[in-house]
Amino acid sequence: MTSHASHLNSAPGEVFEFIYLIKHYKSKYLIPKTPPAWMALEVISFGTLSRLYELLNKDDNKKTIAKQFGLNKIDILENWMHALSNLRNCCAHHSRIWNRRLVVRILLPTNADYLFLDRDTIAKTKQNTAPYYSHPPNI
């Protein structure tokens, strides 16, 4: 089974909602034939969106999406979406996130169009010496 098909099988609720959305759209609108993308995105989870982006072919469309976020490497956006999806799941399931080693290590851009972090902060973060990585105070 392809990874796309296996992903659809793992999200039956989303598939049901999507089918309902399509039926509703077709019963109400004739033009355009397919609903706008934002309608479809309303019924999928962030994890599914992350997987959909990951499964896109590495072509100009994927680069264009990453470029909208000022990123010149598609791997960075894939990583961010995966990391944020895992963080979101921790929060949604009431897991502790403070002082926790997250499964997906976030990649920092070094050649982004927009300045996310200055180079000194990136260097300190990579060395694990940034002030916000200090241990919590003893209470």
Rank of each mutant, 00 (worst) to 15 (best):
T2L: 06
T2R: 05
T2W: 03
S3G: 02
A5S: 13
S6A: 15
H7M: 14
H7L: 14
H7N: 11
L8A: 14
N9M: 07
N9P: 00
P12E: 04
G13R: 00
E14F: 02
F16R: 04
F18Y: 09
Y25N: 05
Y25G: 04
K26H: 12
K28I: 13
Y29W: 06
Y29S: 06
L30D: 12
L30G: 11
I31N: 08
P35E: 05
P35T: 07
A37S: 14
A40T: 12
A40N: 06
E42R: 07
V43L: 03
V43S: 01
V43W: 00
V43Y: 04
I44D: 03
I44T: 12
G47R: 08
T48M: 15
L49C: 12
S50M: 02
S50A: 11
Y53L: 06
Y53H: 04
Y53E: 05
E54T: 09
E54H: 09
L55A: 10
L56C: 15
L56A: 10
K58M: 03
K58A: 09
K58V: 12
D60I: 12
K62G: 06
L71G: 06
L71H: 04
L71E: 05
I74A: 02
D75S: 10
L77F: 08
E78L: 01
N79M: 09
W80R: 04
L84I: 14
S85L: 02
N86M: 10
L87Q: 05
L87N: 06
L87R: 04
R88H: 08
R88S: 11
A92D: 03
A92C: 09
H93I: 08
H94M: 12
H94E: 15
H94G: 14
S95K: 13
R96G: 05
I97R: 01
N99I: 10
R100E: 15
R101K: 12
L102V: 08
V104W: 01
I106W: 00
I106G: 00
I106D: 00
I106E: 00
L107R: 06
L107K: 09
L108N: 05
L108Q: 03
P109D: 04
T110H: 07
N111W: 02
N111M: 09
D113A: 05
L115I: 13
L115R: 09
L117F: 11
L117P: 00
D118E: 09
D118W: 01
R119P: 09
D120Y: 02
D120I: 08
D120Q: 08
T121E: 11
K124P: 07
N128D: 09
N128A: 11
T129F: 03
Y132R: 01
Y132A: 02
Y133P: 00
H135W: 07
N138S: 13
N138I: 12
